[in-house]
Design a binder for these strands. Sequence first.
DNA 1: TTCGTCCAAAATCTCGACATTTTCATTGAC
DNA 2: GTCAATGAAAATGTCGAGATTTTGGACGAA
Lengths: 267, 267
Amino acid sequence: MDEERYQTDQTGSTARTMVEAAYDQIRRDVLSGKLPPGSKLRVEHLRAEYSVGASTLREALSRLVGEALVVAAGQRGFRVAPISVSDVTDLSELRKLLECHALRESIEHGDDRWEANVVAAFHRLSRIEERVHENPEELGDEWEDRNRAFHEALIAGCANRWVLHFRKILYVQSLRYRRLSLTNRSIPRDVHAEHSAIFDATLARDADLACRQLADHIEKTKAVIAAITSRVLADRSVGASAEDVAHAPRSAEAQEAADQDAAGQPG
Amino acid sequence: MDEERYQTDQTGSTARTMVEAAYDQIRRDVLSGKLPPGSKLRVEHLRAEYSVGASTLREALSRLVGEALVVAAGQRGFRVAPISVSDVTDLSELRKLLECHALRESIEHGDDRWEANVVAAFHRLSRIEERVHENPEELGDEWEDRNRAFHEALIAGCANRWVLHFRKILYVQSLRYRRLSLTNRSIPRDVHAEHSAIFDATLARDADLACRQLADHIEKTKAVIAAITSRVLADRSVGASAEDVAHAPRSAEAQEAADQDAAGQPG
DNA sequence: TTCGTCCAAAATCTCGACATTTTCATTGAC
DNA sequence: GTCAATGAAAATGTCGAGATTTTGGACGAA
């Protein structure tokens, strides 16, 4: 069989169907910010962009609804999930709860193989965090990947599939916020220290300390992405070109109100 | 506008599009067990059943994937999410974590309106739990509804949308397991006492005790649905008619192995 | 028997056209 | 000036036909 039949993109994701290919590509474009939060996803327009039929595109979008990266409104089409500061707060709080739970499980039940993978992932991450200051643009994506791998390795000892599933969704949501600002794609300087603290406590099998460090790490990430989000929303409310944005707040004070119900999450 | 344009079902759910109507109906059929766990969802066949086109049906199924009630496999179509004992365990454990977290938030931050709603919901539930012994068949659905309302009222004081969203998914999953066995649709006799204990501790604003009672309640529910699940899987492995079931275990010992990876959840 | 190949039937996946609904700028009335 | 009605343009939602892939059994060789 032709392995890369539907590979219209640059990455090595092997999509078996057109739906999956479109799903992958749209997902990437949402995460990269190419499709901005709140923007309308016109099927007729995107059809050409992703070279698929209308039904296929709709199916791909429907699957993204399940990850809360896209929202579907009654007879009013699809939109990229909006962003809000309150969403960042909710997201991060639950991330703490789930990741700490998973980390505790891992520390208590993880075997040698789990521990070895944590060591390896931390080493790979440390290596790039040493060099990432030199040219953040080039190493940014690689750091992103190794950071994800490290966090996944930490909790891989947790056997609860539901915890891992929901945690992943939250991680991706958080990732989207982090990538919102192109200027902030560089990594803040204290991240390596935070990772080290988590790593040390984990290897020492000190669950309480490890969870405290991990929670602290997530809390600091939250502060960064909340600031980014706040600034992006403020910029958007003054700057024009809000043509596509859903109910874009017109003034700085209206933004606070919009913040209340702009979360892309509720059922 | 015609409010009930797409209402092909008996309930009052007002679906705005054919996709939503099909989504609602299939969801109900999965939860009721009319579409059994693991069974294949052939688009051509279901098209007639739900009176929609192929693309529409696929879109509805895609949305159910997001709730993990349906799983989509590469080029191999859709299936109802399979069941397993380990899934029950994972499900219930996370339910404890999320519901207790939400309950604690509610107790600490809930206002008078929240408290009043809890009282009202508990009252409505108590009333039907007094009479449900008489004829469980008739009052079963009503009890189900009031039970859901009570549990939702308890945690309504939690402002975190992500917590509520994931909690709801888990609740529905749990509901499906509970409805698996038609014989077990009657409510065990100690449920009202459990609800009372949760209620009393909640109104007393004793978060620790309330969470203990709630966790205990979920744990006991878990025991019941785990037993049901185990029996259903055993019956299925002996009894034939496993025509549609995915990789149906042939023997009692093979079931244990199948239990390992039959969870409908992983990414 | 057991395994691999081959082929027809069945199912999945994909597409573009069409019907329905929403959007929004224009017009007119108060 | 504000508001409601109008209607054309644009977008959404729906469908079944057809291309592609999987499935399952027949056939034959080791």
